[in-house]
Write a protein that binds this DNA or RNA. Structure first.
Lengths: 158, 158
DNA sequence: TCGTTATTGTTTCCCAGTAGACAATTTTTT
DNA sequence: AAAAAATTGTCTACTGGGAAACAATAACGA
């Protein structure tokens, strides 16, 4: 049992260099985090992407569709489908601005704002504790490093 | 300009509570990290999932297909497609073990091991520096926190 | 031992998301 | 002013990946 690579008796897997691969760790972390998301929002029939669109629209009323897509790293083609469906659901208003007839400005409807009012507290509650396996302090540090990596400033506590 | 929500003049987007949402940050981080991956492995025609399969097979020869899927958080249905393709490419050997005729043991072929020998140094080089926007120390701390969150021990430095 | 339940990989069908081309505009260049 | 280039949203076609049902086998219980 000198070589741990041969000890698979307990069903544990050796990750080797992957345990140092940031992309791999981020992918697993995201999957784990999303599982928690669906648990917290179980009663609300919403998906992560929709929530992010609603939140950003709430913070940036009238934002251009392309800028929204860029901010969320969602491809424009997919964003089109997404916001159109949300428009059909009555959550979003889409309008062509006067000064640029190619573009599309997005606004939350009353129903959209109401939806945000319901979802935001659930999100806050969901994020209040530490991530599974981490203390609150460690979770805060993890978020801080991710924000720095992404060049996103913390706009929640300010 | 008292309310930053109305200052979109510079094209910046207000993330609001999302800047505190771990799942959102992890998703953006993963996308950014994967972009770096494809840059580093540009010449090798490989995708992240395939690389992880190769690395885990190298570390755990003869592992069961289902356990591999679980370790990488890839659904069994998808893993089937993946490993079959890699089998067709001559990288993987699949064998039904004597003691369980439902199962499938996976091994790297000579070509598979050769592929690992080529890819591993590229991965090491790719991971050696800090992530974009972070120092080496900060990157190491980020990885450490992710490993703790995922309950993965660091098997690369040991 | 026989019937029931759980596991393992596979198949089929479906959906989220992407790539690339496109039309309509706007911006820039000459 | 005209032409060329860039931007913006959309469309079509494609791919990665998941859900659910399935067959084969193994494990378990009466």
């Amino acid at each position: 049992m000198d070589d741990p690579r041969k000890d698979r008796s307990d069903g544990k897997v050796q990750y080797g260099p992957l345990s140092e691969a940031l992309g791999f760790l981020l992918r697993l972390g995201q999957l784990k985090s999303f599982a928690g998301f669906f648990r917290s929002f179980e009663a609300e029939d919403i998906r992560p992407g929709e929530l992010t669109v609603l939140m950003v629209l709430h913070e940036n009323p009238g934002i251009r569709q392309g800028m929204l897509a860029k901010a969320l790293s969602i491809k424009r083609a997919h964003m089109t489908k997404m916001v159109r469906q949300m428009e059909d659901e009555g959550l979003i208003l889409r309008r062509v601005p006067e000064d640029d007839k190619r573009a599309m400005e997005l606004w939350l409807t009353e129903a959209g704002e109401a939806r945000v009012a319901v979802l935001a507290p659930i999100l806050a509650e969901h994020e209040s504790g530490g991530a599974a396996g981490l203390s609150v302090t460690e979770t805060a540090e993890l978020k801080r490093l991710l924000r720095k990596m992404l060049n996103i400033r913390n706009g929640a506590s300010g």
